[in-house]
């Protein structure tokens, strides 16, 4: 842990790129010196006996199992209408956290995120229940994403068709589905909604080749309706294909922000791929 902190401090001193505002374009998302800190429980430390716990309470110390993770450290940028922004970086560089913060799901410790409309993550996995049938999960997922009951009914057939399950499976519990079938249904539900700002966190590479092609077409369709798109991916080809701009995150800070080709070239060189 100490080693990580040390490295973080070193990169703190490196200046992040300055934000340049383009007055001719319409901003959709403004991220202003954003810091995200979240707490992790049960992360080891201490002997973990009742006696040590009591001593800790008496000495008014924090729980050793509780660690604060400073995942995003002062990120600023402006996204404009029509932007498709790829977010790249190594594991644990804060990409997913940044996306969740833009969606307003993780409250900022400092700074702020300003958006036009409601950004939303593409994904409903958390709202679905494995014990229930596909049918019920479609309704539940749509309602959880904020569709009205009428919209849910209207979208229902489209979702079933897109998920392309084996006949009859829609009435079985989702726990009986193969992983590919489950992923297809989840994607179909998630894609049933239009978004003001679309946030995609590595949700594309699901299912077989045929479904991959169809989901890619669906994503492009969603992109056209959305004001701006953020894509987190490790697959650089995919980023290069879809995005007109790339943000490179390193240790929770922006290392580079700019044209797709330039940033990816620099990133590939730095990581030695």
């Amino acid at each position: 842990m100490a080693e990580v902190k040390e490295r973080a401090r070193v990169s703190d001193s490196a200046p992040q790129p300055q934000v340049v505002i383009d007055p001719t374009r319409e901003p959709i998302v403004v991220v202003d010196d954003l810091h995200i800190v979240y707490r992790v429980y049960g992360a080891g430390g201490g002997k973990g006996t009742a006696a040590t716990a009591l001593m800790r309470v008496l000495r008014r110390q924090n729980r050793p199992q509780m660690k604060e993770v400073h995942a995003v450290r002062g990120v600023s940028f402006v996204a404009y209408r029509g932007d498709a922004i790829g977010v790249i970086g190594t594991n644990g560089s804060g990409k997913s956290t940044l996306l969740k913060a833009i969606a307003g799901l993780l409250p900022p410790a400092r700074g702020g995120v300003y958006t036009q409309g409601q950004p939303s993550l593409l994904g409903v996995n958390a709202a679905l229940m494995r014990e229930l049938s596909g049918e019920r999960n479609i309704v539940l997922g749509c309602l959880a994403m904020g569709l009205t009951p009428e919209e849910t009914r209207a979208k229902y057939d489209e979702i079933v068709k897109f998920a392309d399950l084996k006949p009859g499976f829609i009435q079985y519990p989702m726990s009986t589905y193969s992983s590919g079938m489950g992923a297809r249904l989840r994607f179909a539900i998630a894609a049933a909604r239009t978004h003001d700002v679309l946030l995609i966190d590595e949700a594309l590479a699901t299912g077989d080749a045929k479904f991959k092609r169809r989901s890619k077409a669906k994503i492009n369709e969603l992109r056209k309706d959305a004001g701006a798109v953020f894509l987190v991916a490790h697959n650089l080809d995919q980023v290069e294909e879809t995005c007109n701009r790339v943000i490179w995150l390193d240790e929770g800070r922006i290392r580079m922000d700019g044209d797709t080709k330039e940033v990816i070239a620099a990133y590939t060189e730095a990581t030695g791929k």
């Binding site: 319409e26 901003p27 998302v29 403004v30 307003g104 409250p107 900022p108 995120v113 300003y114 958006t115």
Partner: peptide
């Protein structure tokens, strides 16, 4: 952001 009518996300 305020000038362009953007609202705080969280």
């Amino acid at each position: 952001a305020a000038r362009h009518g953007l609202t705080q996300s969280a």
